[in-house]
Design a protein around this nucleic acid. Sequence first.
DNA 1: AATTCCAGAGAACAGTTGTTAACTGCATGG
DNA 2: CCATGCAGTTAACAACTGTTCTCTGGAATT
Lengths: 212, 212
Amino acid sequence: MSHTLGIRQAQKQKTRQALLDAALGLLEEQSLSSLGLREVTRAVGVAPTAFYRHFRSTADLGVALVEEALGSLHPMIRTTVSTTGDREERVVRTIDLIARHVDGYPAHVRFIARERHGGVQPVREAIRGQLTRFAQEVKDELAKDPVSEGWSEDDLLMLAHLYVDQMLSTASLFLEALEGPEEERPARTREVAQLATRQMRLIGLGRHHWLD
Amino acid sequence: MSHTLGIRQAQKQKTRQALLDAALGLLEEQSLSSLGLREVTRAVGVAPTAFYRHFRSTADLGVALVEEALGSLHPMIRTTVSTTGDREERVVRTIDLIARHVDGYPAHVRFIARERHGGVQPVREAIRGQLTRFAQEVKDELAKDPVSEGWSEDDLLMLAHLYVDQMLSTASLFLEALEGPEEERPARTREVAQLATRQMRLIGLGRHHWLD
DNA sequence: AATTCCAGAGAACAGTTGTTAACTGCATGG
DNA sequence: CCATGCAGTTAACAACTGTTCTCTGGAATT
């Protein structure tokens, strides 16, 4: 299916990716709304005008970054929620998976957390769209669980949103631990994991008694 | 107690407040990290250099805004959590109070939501400090409730953080409803209130069965 | 082999930025 | 009443920004 693209297209995609990577790096210490196009091209080592061959503006680049950061996450979410096993075990595995993801893609996580409520409207909307999709998918998985018998669609979606928010908040806490002083890192990471685990457990308890 | 300050100090505080207000306005469509000092002074109608009489930098101004947005909120939080009455009634009253606050100070709410994970470290830390204080205060109020008998300090704090996060997330949703198209506003506001109410209710359920 | 296409370079533009220095005028305290 | 303090002004600076137009070299097409 996938056609091997020519030297030309390949080189273009390479610089495009370089721009995205450079931007993600620069966004560690600032917000998208203050990211300059010249700043990005300088970091890559291309002329400022080359930027326009790939993006209309930095806002446009931001939307592309949302796709990169969240687009490939859907299968992971689905499998996470639907993994079998003990209730407690599932919670622990989910938290662990979040921790692993933050470890593997810290810049992506920071970008999403930062720009979700950031100053660039199209990016905010792109993130909101992806998170809504996540909530829908989580809802679909929750619906399969026998615990969800008798639940209304609205209530399932309500719970799904709560889970999605909780996951994001947890990811952000893991990131803070990762960025803090190195010697405190293991301890802080454990603390965050424990906090998140108990919060998820409490939400799970609420879920089981919802229909009382 | 409060000494009536001279004409001089009064005028100074007046421009200082004007700078804060102008900044808050400008931050509706951008992040703090892209807010320029000249931009702020221009909006107020003073010379750029006058800025330095009040703040070292825009980051410094940001920290002052955190104080303004969250500093006066502590008594409200305390009384909210500790209000008596039916369990369901308390939830509804809390959500209503959040909605009222967002209505009264939308720019403050947006600022906090935006800069909590924003690109300016000192501001992030100032917000984190205030939210930690909130969590502590919520914990203290929760501890007084007979439902909390047998709870460990850690678990109380865990729940308090969950409540604080939930409040912030709800405030942000109310804000989105407020900023959306005018004709959808009442409906969206009702939907958000209903969603938030059920999420709080579910967390409350988890709380009641925590020690099972 | 000749032609078209197009990613990236280069130069120039008007405007913007933060920061400095020296100033002015007025409220303040002696 | 007079000298001091200090909020705010004015002017100038080097550095930076996004965007335009023109150009070039080499891959792609014929």
